[in-house]
């Protein structure tokens, strides 16, 4: 089939070049001219992927960038006008832009260490379990939160954190008597505790999923490396610090970058736990963008796109820095 295609392509002279390759009988067909397609046939095979990539990945980004330079408002049928950097100037001069970015960064600062360090420690502990059946049981238990649908997770934690009827406050008020229903902690709904509460939920939710990454990394470390270190007199901490940790660094890099992006860009949780109260810690740049694009006024999607681009650029700068921090030092 491939040969047939190749022969067919050869019979498609484009620029009249003389073929160096002879296929078929020259006596019958005369000198075969090599087609442009032959020389570039790699591109022909790549074309579907390239087209898909451009259509699916590049076009939406280019479109958003273009929108960010216009006054596009979704609820009007007026054509969008080019406004240059006006939307960027408006976004950057709005204190809400910086406050909302700061809130997202605050959440990330709580979430990211929790989502790397705790799963790493758990993975190391489980990796050390000698009884394979028990190790499997631990893995399954850890993975349970990861397979619970998001809706159920949100319902569960909203109930857990509920000020009046949640089990956490029930424990603090009814069981321990440390608080009353007049001064018990207000976990969700826009208080200072909201972002830490959401971070705890997220860490719990991703615990098993992230641990599996580290378990895979641990399994890939040759057993003789830590054994040799131990024979040379290294203690367990030294083995972990100098043998295990450097070899898990590529996995940490992937997790940090993936989770940095998702934690800075959280939106569902904030919509569910905080809404559109602009003073709420959950009103981050993603909510600001959504608010402008789909809720407020004539839905100013030009400004919303600029807010999104500013947020994305800030994130890209941080990701570059993180890649530098976690670069391989071998």
């Amino acid at each position: 089939m491939k040969d047939l295609l190749r022969v067919t392509l050869l019979w498609l002279p484009i620029r009249g070049e003389t073929a160096k390759v002879t296929t078929g009988n020259p006596a019958i067909h005369g000198p075969i001219r090599k087609s442009w397609l032959v020389e570039h046939n790699n591109w022909v095979f790549l074309l579907p992927t390239v087209l898909f990539f451009v259509w699916y990945q590049v076009y939406p980004i280019v479109r958003v960038v273009w929108i960010s330079f216009t006054d596009y408002k979704y609820l009007t049928n007026d054509p969008a006008n080019w406004v240059g950097f006006d939307n960027y100037a408006e976004a950057l001069s709005d204190p809400l832009m910086w406050d909302s970015l700061g809130r997202a960064a605050y959440f990330t600062a709580m979430f990211l260490p929790g989502t790397i360090i705790i799963p790493l420690l758990l993975a190391v502990l489980i990796h050390g379990v000698q009884n394979q059946r028990l190790a499997t049981v631990y893995r399954v238990i850890l993975l349970i939160p990861a397979v619970i649908p998001s809706t159920l997770v949100f319902v569960l934690w909203k109930w857990m954190y509920n000020y009046q009827i949640g089990p956490i406050n029930h424990f603090l008020v009814e069981v321990t008597g440390w608080f009353t229903y007049r001064n018990a902690p207000q976990w969700l709904g826009g208080t200072d505790l909201t972002l830490p509460s959401v971070a705890i939920m997220e860490v719990w939710w991703g615990l098993g999923y992230h641990s599996v990454f580290f378990l895979a990394g641990l399994a890939a470390i040759p057993k003789d490396l830590p054994e040799a270190a131990r024979i040379d007199g290294a203690n367990e901490w030294q083995v972990f610090r100098h043998i295990i940790l450097p070899r898990l660094q590529p996995i940490m890099l992937i997790l940090v970058i993936l989770r940095f992006g998702t934690s800075m860009g959280v939106i569902d949780e904030y919509l569910i736990f905080g809404g559109f109260n602009r003073e709420s810690p959950t009103y981050t740049w993603t909510i600001f963008m959504y608010d402008q694009a789909f809720k407020t006024g004539l839905w100013r999607q030009g400004l919303a796109a600029a807010i999104g681009m500013v947020g994305s650029l800030v994130m890209m700068a941080f990701v570059s820095w993180l890649i530098y921090i976690f670069r391989s030092r071998d």
């Binding site: 000020y163 009046q164 207000q186 826009g190 569910i272 809404g275 559109f276 709420s280």
Partner: peptide
């Protein structure tokens, strides 16, 4: 109840509000 100003639990904080919880709990 002290949580009266907090956002609700559903529909972007608009529904499932603390007043409903307090009234439902006969408080």
């Amino acid at each position: 109840h002290p949580d009266i100003l907090l956002a609700g639990a559903t529909d972007g904080g608009v529904n499932g509000t603390p007043d409903e919880v307090a009234f439902a709990a006969q408080r």
